[in-house]
Amino acid sequence: MRTDDDSWDIKTSVGSTALFVAAARALAGRAPDAPARDEFAELFVRAAGPEWVDLLEGRAPEHPLLTPDFGAQFQQHQIARTRYFDDFMTAAAAAGIRQVVILAAGLDSRAYRLPWPDGTVLYELDQPQVLAFKRNTLTAAGHKPIAERHEVAVDLREDWPKALREGGFDPDAATAWLIEGLLIYLTPAAQDQLFDAVAALSAPGSRVAIEQMDPLPAEAVAAMSEGDDSGSEWVSMIYNEPRTDSTEWFAGRGWTGQRVRLTDYIRDLGQTLHSAGPQQQSLISLVTVTR
């Protein structure tokens, strides 16, 4: 169960979800028609321990990520949203934005794998143990970031804008913000506080990409809570409550935006939706707003 002052490393609580998501990206990226690929995802997963290596090598057939219902859908979800946010970053760079902030960066590897123009400065915010795991794993493998990468080790429930500014962030420069796989782990009030901070730090021309999720139906929460360990653990980490729609929140403050349902976006990519099992994908939207 979450508490107001809980913390985590890469293998515990919210941190462990970054590994789970990286494993999904690694597996989904193996498909010949994968809409995106993250060549660093497998590196992170293998560095996490033998049980994760077993998953990648097919020696854990009962793992939730390998099931034909949940696993197939979740892999599709992760690789599709990777494509959406990769395209967002590429478009922001093409528009001349040279400052990027990734909130709750987890095992995001975009600083290392996207073709950033010279002069791009990228800030990654997360718990110190999570950032250290990523840095140590990539350094040991001989990889260097393409953008000028800055770690900001901070809990997003604390005064992260202060930590970001102290890390070199320029509030007068247009910024591309990424809020991926985060909001469901914040209370609705904390989400709105996060949006307030992002808006306050955003110069004209800034853009924000957001993944949002509608609350799970009560019956789905009950089934997960009584089901396998991974589902019940995940439900205990999220705040499954009604919250402000991100597109409407920013629109009400003069931003323009667009929102697409994940299921529609997957179809737009030419992919066939995996229809077996719970339809969690239908609750997820991908949003881009511009100031």
Rank of each mutant, 00 (worst) to 15 (best):
M1T: 06
T3K: 01
D4W: 11
D6W: 11
S7F: 12
V14M: 04
G15Q: 10
G15K: 07
G15A: 11
G15P: 03
S16G: 13
A18C: 14
F20P: 00
R25F: 05
A26P: 07
L27F: 12
A28L: 07
G29W: 07
R30Y: 05
D33F: 05
E39G: 14
F40H: 15
A41R: 04
A41K: 04
V45N: 09
A47S: 14
A48Q: 00
E51A: 13
A60R: 05
P68N: 10
A72I: 06
Q75H: 06
A80S: 15
T82C: 09
R83Y: 02
R83Q: 08
Y84G: 09
A92R: 07
A93D: 10
I97K: 04
L103G: 07
A105F: 05
G106Y: 03
A111K: 01
G119H: 03
V121T: 15
L125E: 01
Q127F: 13
Q129L: 13
V130Q: 03
V130I: 11
A132M: 04
H143F: 15
H143L: 11
H143N: 12
K144R: 14
P145F: 05
H150L: 12
V152C: 04
V152F: 05
L156S: 01
D159M: 05
W160H: 02
P161C: 09
K162G: 04
E166L: 10
G168N: 06
F169N: 05
A176S: 10
I179K: 03
E180Q: 09
P188Y: 07
A189T: 15
A190D: 15
A190M: 14
A190Y: 12
Q191L: 03
F195A: 07
A203N: 01
P204Q: 00
S206D: 11
R207G: 08
I210P: 04
L216H: 01
E219Q: 14
M224H: 02
S225Q: 13
E226S: 12
G227D: 02
D229G: 04
D229S: 12
S230C: 04
S230N: 07
G231W: 02
W234I: 05
Y239R: 00
N240R: 03
E241Y: 03
P242V: 09
T244Q: 14
T244L: 10
D245M: 04
S246K: 03
T247Y: 06
E248V: 15
W249F: 11
R253H: 14
G254F: 03
G254A: 02
W255S: 10
G257I: 13
R259N: 11
V260M: 10
R261H: 13
R261F: 10
L262K: 06
L262P: 08
Y265D: 02
I266W: 08
R267P: 00
D268C: 06
L273F: 13
L273D: 09
H274T: 14
S275R: 15
S275L: 15
G277A: 02
S282M: 11
L286M: 13
V287T: 15
V287M: 07
V289S: 13
T290F: 01
